[in-house]
Design a protein around this nucleic acid. Structure first.
Lengths: 338, 338
DNA sequence: TTGTAAGCGTTATCAG
DNA sequence: CTGATAACGCTTACAA
């Protein structure tokens, strides 16, 4: 419980605290001799500056807030790894929060962060988030906030996404080309942009084909796995079941896999399946799962670079209002082939 | 960029800052009328207290540091979710760091945290960590540090593990019972305790059987996936290959799956496989993978509860020097059955 | 080149 | 019940 602070070092060295501070910060106005002495003692006593005193003084916390809707998901884990890779080079720290796809939780987290605990926020909104009032608050406080994947489309800031429309379109075309005539689309929520864009791609692909289309083919899923399971089974059992499924998020595809197995249908013979997913072992599944995988790590890196450029450079680089698209990759595997 | 602080509120209300502070903290020595007025304005102006000023004053940050060796791993993600579930009830925040299985990185992270940025640390050490000098520093500073899964055995603190020995033993017995005569053990590192304990269980199971045993059956793996792949193939191709594999960590099992597929061997006919893993979709693999899965979420919760009890209670509950074991579950699936 | 003093936003202590 | 003041540890004008 030692409290080695600048004052203590100053006493030991018989210098003024300010001198010690300057020496530690390698100020040009301190002699090399003094610097050496200070550094030596600091090292010996393992002095660590109090970050909160610094933050209070500088109005900077060297901390970034990261908010994700789900932690047990490779995509988000990879993004955070990407963010951390960059931020730690600048000595920044990461406060990470899981909103659990819950807007109320999200609002609570945001309100914590409003007090200046973080210098910036990078987030993916929950699937329930429709209003962005709480997010605008953040900007009003002058805290930069940027989005990735699940973006708040109308907010004037930089948003990173992948080519959701194109990917949804390509995946659907791929299913059609492989003989699917009745393709369902699994949607987590209409609120979130990625859902909308991926859906739009799907719809356009269907419309551009000779397939009919029915509203019911777009399946609104819930957050509850069991409910989804019942829902899926309910449309898998009847004779007029789908022969293709495009899932907009990994979680739903997993449930679909299970539902299909339970109904004794076969992938890909009876039903072909594609999902957006960043899982590492899609090729080990039975059958190997066709995925649209996002450049998660790179998204994280770019988010962080943008923020670091804005926060740490002397000539501050502004955060523009724009959407940056980093393309996904359609990895074709057996689950979608004849 | 408004700076709504206590002083500002005090001016507006024509009160002293200390009164405002007390009112906001619902002090008993403030009249209800005053409280109401203060609260009202605070709400109206969306006042948020500056956490750093508070931390500086109170020598408490309401922040916990979490260090894990790997982020893209369900086990660690689940543990963090468990930690967060508890800590957020107490208004605590989580700084999360990934050591990437690198001791040097781990040391760097620890040194950041030494300045009082966090009130406590909960961590799983990297597979390279043999010396615990840097970890002892933390304790010397009076910062509580507890461990889970990859523990620093000799440090006087609470460590959460699962029944690694028993699980290793049971899994090996299960393989033997199912006809394996030559079982390899995949080890990430001899340094880490879980490796040692799981290995000890394996060894005792072999010794207690009529099987011979050779040193070479314990495979020292590296951090590099490609190297491991080559290594695995090198012992899979020969005629005297193993007919069973027990992997002490998920990552190695995945590589083994790939290696086995590439060598055209069949699981479980040619080789049976079991791994420690918390993946959600083990049953969707081809073949479904037998796993020893840990109560990750519960481990996280217990870690957090221990810390919260120590940090937030008026009669501080000490962190004892002991090991708490929460049992894992052997989930038998096709990969290990005849 | 070094020392003095003020202040970042809060809260605890002491007075009134 | 409320107000003035000091202090947490650090940095930065300003002074020497």
């Amino acid at each position: 419980m030692t409290k080695i602070n600048i004052k203590y070092l100053a006493e030991k060295l018989k210098m003024a605290p300010s001198t010690v501070s300057r020496a530690l910060n390698d100020s040009y106005e301190i002699s090399e001799a003094t610097k050496a002495k200070v550094m030596a003692l600091a090292k010996e006593l393992n002095y660590q500056p109090n970050p909160y005193a610094r933050s209070l003084r500088a109005h900077k916390s060297r901390t970034i807030g990261v908010i994700i809707p789900e932690r047990i998901n490779n995509f988000f884990a990879q993004v955070i790894d990407g963010i951390e890779e960059i931020t730690q080079q600048y000595g920044y720290h990461l406060l990470v929060y899981n909103s659990h796809e819950d807007v109320e939780q999200e609002k609570k987290i945001i309100s914590y962060l409003l007090g200046g605990r973080v210098d910036a926020i990078v987030m993916s909104v929950s699937s329930q988030t429709s209003s962005t009032e709480h997010l605008e608050q953040v900007q009003k406080q002058g805290i930069p906030i940027i989005f990735f994947d699940r973006i708040a489309q109308d907010m004037p800031t930089t948003k990173f996404i992948t080519n959701d429309y194109q990917s949804g379109f390509d995946a659907t075309r791929h299913l059609i080309k492989n003989g699917c005539r009745k393709i369902y689309f699994l949607l987590l929520s209409k609120e979130i942009t990625i859902g909308k864009e991926r859906l739009r791609g799907y719809l356009d692909a269907i419309k551009g084909s000779d397939l009919p289309f029915k509203e019911e083919w777009v399946i609104q899923c819930s957050q509850d796995e069991k409910q989804n399971m019942e829902l899926f089974k309910s449309f898998l059992y009847p004779m007029d079941r789908p022969d293709g499924i495009l899932s907009s998020v990994e979680k739903l595809a997993i449930t679909a896999y299970h539902a299909i197995k339970q109904t004794r249908l076969s992938i890909p013979k009876d039903i072909k399946l594609i999902t957006f997913s960043n899982m590492k072992i899609a090729d080990l599944l039975n059958p190997p799962l066709t995925t649209i995988s996002q450049p998660a790590h790179e998204i994280g890196r770019q988010c962080a670079k943008l923020l670091m450029n804005n926060l740490t450079k002397t000539k501050q680089i502004p955060i523009e209002d724009k959407v940056i698209t980093i393309p996904s990759v359609l990895q074709i595997r057996s689950s979608s082939e004849p």
